[in-house]
Write a protein that binds this DNA or RNA. Structure first.
Lengths: 157, 157
DNA sequence: CTTAAACGTTAGTGGCACTAACGAATGTAG
DNA sequence: CTACATTCGTTAGTGCCACTAACGTTTAAG
């Protein structure tokens, strides 16, 4: 009985390749993070806070690409773990100011190595040159196809 | 007010880039196919039938990567549009033999151009050389991370 | 002062990969 | 031949994730 391979016509369609690769990548990263009781989104928020400093939830949402409706739960979890502080903004009582705690920094440090490991394993079959090239090409691609600049973020009346 | 950009640390993480690119690609292809009342999966099945000939549902499932539980609906829809025939296999009464009809061939022809257009638009920001390289790298990546050879396809008792 | 917009929050939708279990048919071992 | 395991098509359901809708509150703009 043959190994029933995927037809060549399908195997070379870029959108299919992207979907498959993204699935593999997400599974790999997700497993690694789950082993640390963490999540993709937690990492993104912690990185953003570390890199760009304290911000409102809406700002974090724009910077990370996480919808502000989903951001609530993410921040709740990070706050439960004492990784962030959430305090009302004095200047604008609509906003919350989200800031990193020392525990959050330590958490980020740990997740950083986990993420790095996962990326390394993900890209293992490629040379370092190829890895850079892949990142570059994907960057060009996502840069080009980008929602009309400020992301819509619908839901306002 | 700043345009609140994505932090550089996030923008260069391969798994994130892959997820983003796959999202863009899937949306693009999905929209194009939806305009033809078609679906990703329909195309995959039609291509597979055209390339490898008639097959059972389970075989199609393995070749396309579509789960056989999802395959049922896909084949129902294709049969409703008279794109495929579904007849019991004489040699093995468990199997159905799925085969392409002339209408299915015409349908595939149409979807082929739709898919090709979508891929072209997806890859527009890349040179043809870069497009080939991207496909090659993604191929290496998905090839390397592959479930222990025959896909598990759980659900048996 | 009225109207519009942005904020945080809750709830819900739709697509998709994937699991579970079934009845029926076939293959395999003793 | 008989018992057991496997494969098939099929139905139902789960979990994740991007995304939408609507709300009360607060601030900004005309």
């Amino acid at each position: 009985m043959s190994p029933t391979p995927e037809p060549a016509r399908l195997r070379t369609i870029p959108s299919r390749l992207l979907a498959g690769a993204a699935l593999v990548a997400d599974r790999l990263v997700g497993e690694r993070l789950a082993a640390e009781d963490a999540h993709k989104w937690h990492f993104a928020v912690l990185v953003t806070l570390a890199e760009a400093g304290a911000a409102s939830q809406a700002e974090l949402s724009r910077r990370t690409g996480i919808y502000r409706s989903d951001m609530v739960a993410v921040l709740n979890e990070l706050a439960d773990a004492a990784c962030i502080r959430r305090e009302p903004a004095p200047a604008d009582r609509r906003r919350n100011v989200i800031s990193l705690t020392p525990a959050g920094r330590r958490r980020l440090e740990r997740l950083d190595t986990v993420i790095a490991d996962a990326q390394r394993e993900l890209l293992a079959p490629l040379t370092t040159g190829e890895q850079d090239e892949l990142v570059r090409l994907l960057g060009l691609l996502t840069e080009h196809h980008r929602p009309p600049h400020p992301r819509p973020q619908r839901g306002a009346r």
